Simulated assay, not measured.
Amino acid sequence: MDTTQVFTIGQQGLFMLLTVSAPMLLVVLLVGVLVSIFQAATQINEATLTFVPKLLAAVGVMAVAGPWMMTQLIDYLRSMLLSIPTAAGG
């Protein structure tokens, strides 16, 4: 296994991480911005007002995109495990 293969595997891993985490991060970010705009407009400074909507959004994303996320991760893990014999030179 040479350095090119190591960097390729690392790049694939980082891309998978970004792909799987993007839906959750984007939805929670959008909810956080909307709640912040609401708090600024109404001058309500309540800590739970930011936490609860983000938590509900995260649960909603996991309910909708969770099976897709798990499928992507399982396929990636399967391909990495199956590539071990060829990477080890066997």
Rank of each mutant, 00 (worst) to 15 (best):
M69R: 00
P23D: 04
M24K: 13
L18P: 00
I74L: 11
S36P: 01
D75R: 12
M62L: 15
M70N: 10
V59D: 03
V52G: 03
L29R: 02
L18G: 07
L56Q: 03
G60M: 01
L18E: 03
I74G: 00
V6C: 03
T71Y: 06
Q39P: 03
R78I: 12
P23V: 04
Q72E: 08
L14T: 06
T42E: 04
S79A: 13
V31E: 09
M70T: 15
A57R: 02
S79T: 13
M70W: 12
G32Q: 09
M16T: 06
K54W: 01
L17V: 12
L77N: 02
W68Q: 15
M70R: 13
L14H: 01
L17K: 05
P23R: 11
L34I: 15
L77R: 00
Y76A: 09
T42F: 03
S21C: 14
P67Y: 11
I37T: 07
N45S: 13
A65G: 00
V33T: 01
Q72R: 13
G10C: 02
F51T: 11
S21Q: 05
V27N: 01
M70A: 15
Q11P: 00
M24W: 06
V28Y: 01
V28M: 04
A41D: 03
A22F: 14
L56P: 06
L82Q: 13
P53Q: 04
V52W: 01
F15N: 03
V27T: 09
L29Y: 12
A57H: 01
L34K: 05
M80S: 10
Q12L: 11
S79Q: 10
L82P: 01
G13M: 14
K54H: 02
M24R: 09
T8Q: 05
E46M: 10
T71E: 14
L18V: 11
V6L: 15
T3E: 13
T48W: 14
L14G: 08
Q39V: 03
P53C: 04
V52Q: 04
I9N: 02
G66E: 06
V59P: 02
F7G: 00
Q11T: 09
T71K: 15
A63E: 06
V61Y: 07
T8P: 00
G13D: 08
V64D: 03
I44V: 15
M62W: 09
P53D: 02
Q72K: 08
M69C: 11
T71G: 12
V64S: 08
S79Y: 00
L30G: 08
R78W: 10
Q72S: 11
V6D: 01
L49A: 12
V28L: 01
L49H: 05
A63S: 11
M16W: 00
M70H: 07
A65E: 13
G13C: 07
V20Q: 07
N45F: 10
M24I: 10
G66F: 08
V33A: 08
L17R: 02
T71P: 01
A40S: 14
A57L: 04
T4V: 12
V6Y: 11
T48P: 03
Q12G: 11
A58H: 00
M1F: 13
A57I: 04
I74S: 06
